Every structure is written in structure tokens, then in C-alpha cells.
Computed example of a mutant assay.
Amino acid sequence: MERSKRVVFISHCILNQNAVVHPLARAKGAYKDIIKELMDNEIGIHQLPCPEYRHLGLKREPMTKEDYDTYDFRIINKNIAMDAVGIIIEYLKNGYEVLGIIGINESPTCSIKGQMGILMEELLSLLESNHININLIDVPTDYFDGVNGKSFIEKLHKIITN
């Protein structure tokens, strides 16, 4: 079978809301409409690991970026970012299109727009130093699976179909 050779990188919780700090989950499992949009357009999905989960597990309390911004947590994020950039480079060297990264707005680790999250700071810095430019989009803070998502899905559709 011929591959689409098109892939997006997504924040962990888009596919797994079970990893989101209680009580902030906005879907029962995955964001079905985001995943459906990617699947309907035959886009491969690369799920980034969740640094918060790796650092503090499931029973962690909600924390701010400032709370998370410690030496140990930065190391976790730098390692995830280095791994992700290595994977992106491998895709690009083999003729794939890396269509973008989908973050989570206002996340202390995965926000791209506004106050950038720690993982995205590390990831985007490494992408820049490797001269890699890709599309960036955040799931908005008022997004709930199937609710308030139409404009986001339209933006995502433009990114993955252009």
C-alpha cells in the first residue's frame, strides 16, 4: 500500500485525555473530531509524550508554567524535544511532509501561542536551530470534544490540505 507520507505531531492529550490533570479533561478519551479530521485526510499522527505525566504521574495537581519550570522538568522536556526533532528530521530526509505541530493553548508544557509551554519552548528552539519551519496550531482553551471546535477544525483542515 502506498503511504500518504504526511504526518503531524500532536500533544499527548489530544489522543489521551486520561493523562490530563484532574479535573481539566475536555473529552472522555481522545478528541474524536480532531483525530477524525486527520484520519479522513490520511494524515499520520505522531503523539508527543506528556512531560507532566512523566514527571509527576496521574495524581498530580494542576500547576502553572512557573511551578513546572525546574531543572529536572526542563531536562525531561529537552530530551523529549531532542527525540521529536530527530524523528522529524528522519521523516524529512525520507521525503515525508511534516505538516505541523498541534499544541494545547494555555498548557504549561504544550502551549504554542501566548505564553509558550516548556516543551514547546524546547522543541521550537531545536527546530529553529535545525532550520526546520512547520505549521503550528493550538487547540483553543474553550474547545471541548465536539463543542466549540468548528473554527479550530477549519483552521486545522487548511493546514493539512494546503
Score class of each variant (00 low, 15 high):
91 Y>I: 05
133 N>A: 11
18 N>L: 13
63 M>L: 14
69 D>F: 12
133 N>I: 09
97 E>K: 13
158 K>E: 11
52 E>N: 10
102 I>S: 04
121 E>M: 08
34 I>Q: 02
85 V>H: 07
18 N>G: 15
113 K>D: 13
87 I>F: 04
144 F>Q: 13
137 I>S: 03
153 I>K: 06
88 I>F: 03
162 N>P: 04
58 L>Y: 14
46 H>I: 14
68 Y>V: 00
12 H>T: 07
107 S>L: 06
51 P>S: 12
162 N>Q: 05
51 P>K: 15
140 P>K: 11
153 I>Q: 08
23 P>N: 10
124 L>Y: 05
121 E>D: 13
155 K>P: 04
155 K>H: 09
121 E>C: 06
5 K>T: 01
94 N>M: 06
41 N>C: 10
62 P>M: 06
73 F>E: 06
63 M>Y: 03
56 L>E: 14
99 L>F: 05
42 E>K: 15
144 F>M: 12
118 I>R: 02
94 N>D: 08
142 D>T: 10
154 E>W: 05
135 N>G: 05
126 L>V: 00
86 G>S: 14
160 I>Q: 00
70 T>F: 01
24 L>P: 04
95 G>M: 00
102 I>E: 00
26 R>G: 01
18 N>R: 10
108 P>K: 08
30 A>V: 02
88 I>Y: 04
155 K>Q: 14
149 G>M: 09
30 A>D: 00
125 S>H: 03
20 V>A: 02
144 F>R: 11
114 G>N: 09
98 V>H: 04
69 D>E: 14
67 D>R: 01
59 K>P: 00
12 H>P: 02
54 R>Q: 14
143 Y>M: 15
150 K>F: 10
124 L>F: 10
156 L>V: 06
42 E>D: 15
12 H>K: 06
16 N>Y: 03
105 N>P: 02
36 K>Y: 09
13 C>A: 07
78 K>V: 11
76 I>P: 07
106 E>C: 09
40 D>N: 15
27 A>I: 01
75 I>K: 14
42 E>S: 15
11 S>K: 08
83 D>Y: 12
134 I>Y: 02
81 A>G: 10
25 A>P: 00
95 G>L: 00
137 I>A: 06
162 N>M: 03
5 K>E: 03
137 I>D: 00
79 N>R: 13
41 N>I: 10
55 H>V: 07
37 E>D: 02
61 E>N: 11
37 E>T: 15
42 E>Q: 14
132 I>A: 00
131 H>S: 13
109 T>A: 14
48 L>Q: 08
93 K>N: 13
126 L>N: 01
81 A>N: 08
112 I>N: 04
82 M>G: 12
88 I>G: 02
92 L>S: 03
67 D>P: 01
99 L>C: 08
63 M>I: 10
20 V>L: 03
146 G>H: 08
8 V>L: 12
